[in-house]
Design a binder for these strands. Structure first.
Length: 464
RNA sequence: UCCCCGAUAGCUCAACGGUAGAGCAGCCGGCUGUUAACCGGCUUGUUGUAGGUUCGAAUCCUACUCGGGGAGCCA
């Protein structure tokens, strides 16, 4: 007798098979006609398998009638075509074993819907809900698509360090990594902390980006991508920020900004179409329960080209929009959320790539354009989610890169290994970063980023 | 970090300053190839915490804690 996942047991082709099902009870309905209905979910798909348990089973009264939401069971029997509506198949139970009961007095998940806020407080149990199951399966599909997309294009999956000593990448506050005694650290004669006594002999932090190391690898291997955890110690409390999140960072030698934009667009397109093709049942669930427009959003994402416009064009469109913005628009300022939303949600109603930003508001490593005013940066903006990808063509000219560092208040000597990439065999190259959780938000329609990662980390939030 | 909103039964929510309620879950009974099953009955409370105003506070005021939304920072 074969152990079959619910996803397989639910398809009509499985009728007639003798199978074993292992999972958790979602609901029980008793019939005085001499049997009970159980619905079993095992996480393999959104739908449950209906099980018909006859009262003739020896443990019907002692076990089956005690089954509540959340109980774990194994059931054996024959899969039959279901005469009822809502499912193609059902399992005629010949044998049922209870692995663990779930006392309804203490088990917080019952048949009535619970709020997402409440589910956040029971992060260890919310994977058992329809919503979080669907999110988890879509998140898995997105991860799979990421690897497939790059592997098919000859990218090497590389791993960059989690612990980093480059502590001034300009990408936000960092978490310190240390083995020093916080109460009583070793000190220099002048009273400052003696970092030479620390584990690595210098201050170290959790990475905020693998980009700089990724550039080193791309400038040897050609096309690479990283996919790993990233840490930001910013005290930001929003529906689209996490302190610990997963980021994908491709980096490609000999790429210019236009190539980079093409790559980013094809990448997001692939993620959307894979979700539509491989997670249809879950997407349908999101359309019914989370965001009624999610399907058309994904179809448009998968099929229609993104809008592209320069920062200068964007500023002009905003200035002439007739819209009253809280932050007045003028060239040189960074685009605010309200501006990004207007561009993606009002002007185009789909993703847009804004490129060639003023040098003053972008990072030192972005390539300076001939106009001297802008750098070859790009942001992919998505409706509702905001900036989902940020990237640029990198500055490959040594002297200009050094002067840009000084301009940004950084000491070039601290980046000597990074500058070596320009000193020896420098090449044009470009790359970008995609926030995995924001991608999952875009695909699912989930509005709070804390609901698309199993155990979210945010300021004052490190439970479980 | 700033602004706004909120906290009532296990969950989702109601209750004009005047005895704290409903649905779901649970328990008992009925009915039924059922589909968040259905029908009847029963049970469920330190109204987030601490103070204050008042004859009387879930309701008004203050502080705190926690949560949500928005802003900034960004992916």
């Amino acid at each position: 007798m074969q152990w079959l996942p619910v996803s397989k047991a639910r398809i009509a082709d499985s009728v007639g098979r003798l199978v074993e099902i292992r999972g958790w009870v979602r609901t029980r309905r008793d019939s005085k006609g001499g049997f009970s209905f159980l619905e079993i979910n095992d996480g393999s798909c959104l739908g449950n398998l209906q099980v018909i348990v006859p009262s003739s089973l020896p443990n019907y009264n002692s076990d089956v009638l005690k089954l509540n939401v959340g109980a774990s069971v194994t059931v054996r029997g024959e899969l039959k075509a279901s005469p009822g509506k809502g499912q193609a198949t059902e399992l005629a139970a010949a044998d049922l074993v209870v692995l663990g009961l779930a006392d309804p007095g203490g088990y917080p998940l019952q048949k009535k819907g619970a709020s997402l806020e409440f589910l956040r407080s029971i992060a260890h149990l919310r994977p058992r809900t329809n919503t979080f199951g669907a999110v988890s399966r879509v998140r898995n599909q997105v991860c799979s698509s990421i690897h497939s997309f790059f592997q098919e294009r000859g990218f090497l999956y590389v791993n960059t360090p989690i612990i980093t000593a480059s502590d001034c990448e300009g990408a936000g506050q960092m978490f310190r990594v240390t083995t020093l005694d916080a109460q009583n650290p070793p000190r220099n004669p002048d009273g400052s902390v003696d970092h030479d006594k620390d584990f690595f002999g210098k201050p170290t932090h959790l990475t905020v980006s693998g980009q700089l190391e990724g550039e080193a690898l791309a400038c040897a291997l050609g096309r690479i991508y990283t996919f790993g955890p990233t840490f930001r110690a910013e005290n930001s409390n929003t529906t689209r920020h996490l302190s610990e999140f997963w980021m994908v960072e491709p980096e490609v030698a000999f790429f210019q900004l236009e190539d980079n934009m093409d790559l980013a667009e094809a990448f997001l397109r692939r993620i959307a179409s894979d979700a539509l093709n491989h997670c249809a049942e879950d997407i349908q669930f999101f359309a019914e329960r989370i965001d009624p427009n999610i399907r058309s959003t994904l179809l448009s994402l998968a099929e229609e080209p993104f809008e592209r416009l320069s920062y200068t064009e964007a500023v002009a469109r905003l200035a002439n929009s007739g819209e009253v913005f809280e932050h007045p628009v003028k060239w040189g300022m960074d685009l605010q959320s309200e501006h990004e939303r207007w561009i993606t949600e009002k002007l185009f109603r789909r993703p847009a790539i804004v490129h060639d930003y003023p040098r003053e508001i972008k990072a030192f490593y972005m390539r300076l354009s001939d106009d001297g005013k802008t750098v070859r940066a790009m942001d992919v903006l998505a409706p509702r989610v905001g900036e989902i990808i940020g990237g640029s063509q990198r500055e490959e000219r040594l002297e200009i890169l050094e002067s840009r560092m000084r301009e940004c208040g950084l000491d070039p000597d601290a980046y000597s290994w990074y500058l070596d990439l320009r000193r020896f065999g420098t090449v044009p190259h470009a790359g970008f970063g995609l926030g995995l959780e924001r991608a999952v938000q875009m695909i699912t329609g989930m509005t709070n980023i804390r609901d698309v990662i199993p155990f979210p980390r945010a300021p004052r939030l490190a439970d479980f």
